[in-house]
Amino acid sequence: MANSINTNRGALVALQTLNATNKALETTQNRVNTGLKVSSAKDNGAIFAIATSQRAEMGAQDAVKQSLQRGQSIVDVALAAGETVVDGLTELKSLAVAIQDSVAGSDTETKLMADFDAIAKEVHSALAGATFDGVNLFKTGTLIEVSTNTSGGKFTLKAAADPAAATGLAFGGTATPATGVWAPAGTVAAKRTAYTAASVDTALNGFTTVLADFGTKSKSLDRQATFVGKLQDSLETGIGNLVDADLAKESARLTALQTKQQLGVQALSIANSSSSILLGLFR
């Protein structure tokens, strides 16, 4: 091959090799710095698009988890109030038995009925206070739902048509579930007719049925929340499999490329010196 000072083929080849090494080194350094083998669409458009879509799905799952946690809090508050109500109804049954055993018109009857009235008011007050984030499961007229997935799935905590739990706890008086106000029957005779063990049993059975339904729903929400957590973990692992760099391999590759870069620089230097050697032919 003819020697020429105008065209240094060796230098051109060395420069191309060095440029390729520098480009590979830049890619490897970016992977080491970011921990990602696909950090932008330029690295791999298809994988970047998939990873971006799945990250958006993970963000949406966070919203679902928050919705489920809100639902759990609503139900937990209702169950806590429900325990107070059950304790009150249990005490009311004892009072009802004592009232029926007392002499009509006696001072004992009056005191027992006063106790019954006080506890009944506490029961209704507890029901009205069982509110979380403006939601009360013991009231009626409002559909209460929470999201269970990103596709629009809903879990119903309370249907709009469900009656208020307080309506079965009137004991001959007037209950207003919306405000928690309860007014006892107006006459002693009406109270004696309403304040019986049988009426308390009826109220207790109806109320515990409501609590049992809430308990079942609480468990369902807990299972849904656990599933969403596992789903998020799976999505995160899947995204990692697509875009995460193997840092052990990249570290070894970085060392090799740095050595190759140094050799490339030396090779280019040698190739560039070939032109000066031609000067010796003219001495």
Rank of each mutant, 00 (worst) to 15 (best):
M1C: 12
A2E: 12
A2F: 15
I5C: 05
N6R: 12
R9F: 11
Q16Y: 13
Q16P: 06
Q16L: 12
L18M: 08
T21R: 05
N22F: 01
K23T: 14
K23G: 09
E26F: 11
T28C: 04
N30W: 04
N30K: 11
R31E: 08
V32Y: 06
V32T: 10
N33D: 14
T34F: 00
G35Q: 07
V38A: 08
A41R: 03
A41E: 10
K42M: 09
D43A: 04
A46C: 07
A49D: 13
A51I: 06
S53I: 01
Q61W: 08
D62F: 04
V64M: 01
K65F: 09
Q66V: 10
Q69I: 06
R70T: 13
G71P: 02
G71T: 04
V75W: 00
D76Y: 02
D76W: 02
V77S: 06
V77T: 14
A78C: 04
G82F: 00
E83S: 15
T84Y: 08
T84D: 11
V85K: 09
V85P: 04
V86E: 07
D87N: 13
L92Y: 01
L92N: 00
D101Q: 12
S106L: 01
D107L: 07
A114M: 11
F116A: 04
D117I: 07
I119G: 05
K121A: 14
L127Y: 03
A130Q: 00
F132N: 12
F132Q: 14
G134P: 00
V135D: 02
V135A: 07
F138Q: 03
F138D: 03
T140E: 15
T140A: 15
G141N: 06
L143A: 12
S147M: 13
T148N: 06
N149P: 04
T150N: 12
G152A: 01
G153L: 09
G153F: 03
G153D: 07
K154C: 00
K154Q: 10
F155D: 07
G172Q: 06
G172P: 03
P177S: 02
P177W: 02
A178I: 03
A189C: 05
K191C: 01
T193E: 15
A194Q: 00
A197K: 08
S199H: 15
S199V: 14
V200N: 05
D201R: 02
L204Y: 09
N205C: 05
N205Q: 12
G206K: 08
T209E: 11
G215K: 07
G215R: 05
S220R: 11
L221H: 03
T226A: 10
F227H: 15
D233I: 01
D233G: 07
D233Q: 06
S234E: 13
L235C: 03
E236Y: 12
T237I: 11
N241E: 15
D244V: 05
K249A: 10
A252F: 10
L254G: 03
T255G: 09
Q262L: 15
Q262P: 08
L263Q: 14
Q266N: 12
A267R: 09
A267S: 12
L268S: 08
L268I: 01
I270R: 11
N272S: 12
S273H: 08
S276V: 14
I277A: 09
L278C: 03
L279T: 14
L279F: 15
G280H: 13
L281K: 15
F282H: 07
R283Q: 15
